[in-house]
Amino acid sequence: MDWGTIINNTLAGLLTPTTIAFALAALGLAMHFGFAGLLNFGIAGFMAIGAYGYAISVLTFGFPWWGGMIVGIIGSILFAILLGIPTLRLRGDYLAIVTIAAAEIVRLLFLTTAFTDVTGSADGLFGYNNAGGFTNANPFPPGSYGWGPWTYNSETLWVLTFGLGVLAVCVWFLWALMRSPWGRVIKGIREDEEAIRALGKNVFAYKLQALIIGGIFGGMGGIIFAAFANVSPGVYVTSITFFIWTSLLLGGAATIWGPVIGAVIFWTLQAFLSNILPELALAGILPVSGTQAATLRFVLVGIGLMLLVIYRPQGIFGDKRELTFVK
């Protein structure tokens, strides 16, 4: 057992572009579910639209990287509107099914061979970070930065810095909104939208605004993910939505920092398990093969999600009294 490598890899999981991307998406879900009570099971769709919007506008339409990212965000906003206008009147569990179906439609449209020239079909898209100039915009000269498990080359450091900047802005944005009277209305809607309507608030408009804000966060998550890795349709499956839900519930749905910390814990645990389980199998402590050991960590995610919802639905940092599962 190489404990040094295991611990090193686990600690590295604390800060990766993936962690940041998923923290952003979880932040979006916190807006949707934790604060506004909207059961969005289609956050993967928002991420996919952000990522593809960025990549396609650079590769097909020759946009600069920042232009592409703006297109990705506009795409998420349009998706939120497209999804929200007809569905926000639906009952909570109906909304869940509609959003999960919409996200699958988005994924299938990106996956189909009919649009291969634009979407790359199953291969996905790559090379847009160079083509759009994101890589060149890197202010850090080539070299090695950081120490110990947190050693990065200049490219990774650039994505991390950019991602952390975006995350910080989004966290501030959510915090500023939720302490305002606007946030009060949103929380009121989560509790009972009819009561809020009876007080003269346009509930539909508020819900749509919440869906758009959370959708932008989700889209930003997809963009940060794309800024680091290739865009591949295999990423934006429903499992990813559920992993993000797990991160969110882990940290506490109705909190500002909960989703961020939840995502960090989730991906650090994933890094830990994906390192230690095959090692345990190799060392003969676990009587399973290496691939089986890798599968085990997802089994643990599922069990973890169930235990969390049953025994600690407010999350690690949530207030016990402020349970979000009111309905």
């Binding site: 909570g92 559920f242 309905k327």
Partner: peptide
């Protein structure tokens, strides 16, 4: 006495668990 949303998310956890147990 869990709410239906809670039960729904638990069924998602169960789905992930079973799916990967089968893959296992």
């Amino acid at each position: 006495g869990l709410g239906i949303v809670q039960l729904m998310i638990i069924s998602i956890g169960l789905s992930l668990t079973l799916r990967y147990v089968i893959q296992f």
